[in-house]
Amino acid sequence: MAYFETERLVLRPIQPTDHDQLQALILDPQVVAYVRYRSIQTPAAFDAAFTTHFLAEPRTVFGLETKRDHQLIGFYEFHMTQTTGELTYALRQSAWGHGYVAEAGTTLMAYGFDSLALERIEAHYASVNPNSGRVMAKMGMHDEGELQTHTLDNGETVHVMMYGLSRSDWRGQRHSQSA
């Protein structure tokens, strides 16, 4: 099982004791408004996802815990195909705007390229949340434009934007930073 520490965070596999904090996060409609978990709207639906996904994927799903008070503030994960990993994350609202996503994401990109042998890492965001795009750029990813447009159940049209980074570009960035 992978475990990482950054300046302010511990990135670790989700544990059974994370259930209640993660459930509160996933059932907060503002937190999941534009991520794949917005369809989980009941405790029973969350329980199923918690067991079959969050606990079952220790190599690709990580809880984000603050070092300061050891509180779970969110999660970060890879959804993988053969050579590509799509990063998805969610933070409780009180953790928004503190730089946690870029801090954890940079560490997980290194893990994805070095340990999971990914050739490419992508991240998607809804255009109505441009802060996510800025975070992806801060992590060294490249803006690749609009991926798709779809309509949510509430009738809202969402433009899904994509950022990406190849392993060779990532290595080039690391080499230029160390030079």
Rank of each mutant, 00 (worst) to 15 (best):
M1W: 08
M1Q: 11
M1Y: 08
A2Q: 01
Y3V: 14
Y3R: 15
F4A: 11
E5F: 03
E7W: 01
L9M: 08
L11Y: 06
R12F: 10
R12D: 05
P13R: 06
Q15Y: 01
Q15D: 08
Q15P: 00
P16K: 10
D20A: 13
L22P: 01
Q23Y: 01
Q23H: 02
A24N: 14
A33M: 12
S39W: 04
I40C: 02
P43T: 12
A44I: 07
A45S: 04
A45C: 04
D47S: 15
H53Q: 07
T60S: 14
T60A: 11
T60I: 11
F62E: 05
G63I: 00
G74L: 09
G74Y: 08
F75D: 05
F78R: 07
F78P: 08
H79T: 13
T81L: 05
Q82E: 10
T83G: 05
G85V: 03
E86L: 05
E86I: 07
L87E: 03
L87P: 00
T88D: 07
L91M: 05
R92V: 15
S94E: 14
W96G: 12
W96H: 15
G97P: 05
G99P: 12
G99L: 14
Y100E: 02
E103Q: 09
T106H: 03
L108T: 04
Y111T: 10
F113T: 06
F113Y: 06
F113H: 03
D114H: 14
S115A: 15
A117G: 10
A117L: 13
R120F: 01
I121P: 10
A123Q: 04
A123F: 01
H124Y: 15
A126D: 15
A126V: 10
S127W: 06
N129T: 12
N131D: 04
M136E: 11
M136A: 14
K138A: 11
M139S: 01
G140V: 04
G140E: 09
H142W: 04
D143Y: 13
E146D: 02
T149Y: 09
T149I: 09
T149N: 07
H150L: 13
T151S: 10
T157N: 00
V158M: 03
M162P: 00
Y163K: 05
Y163E: 03
Y163S: 11
L165F: 00
S166T: 15
D169K: 09
G172V: 00
G172C: 07
Q173M: 06
Q173H: 05
A179F: 11
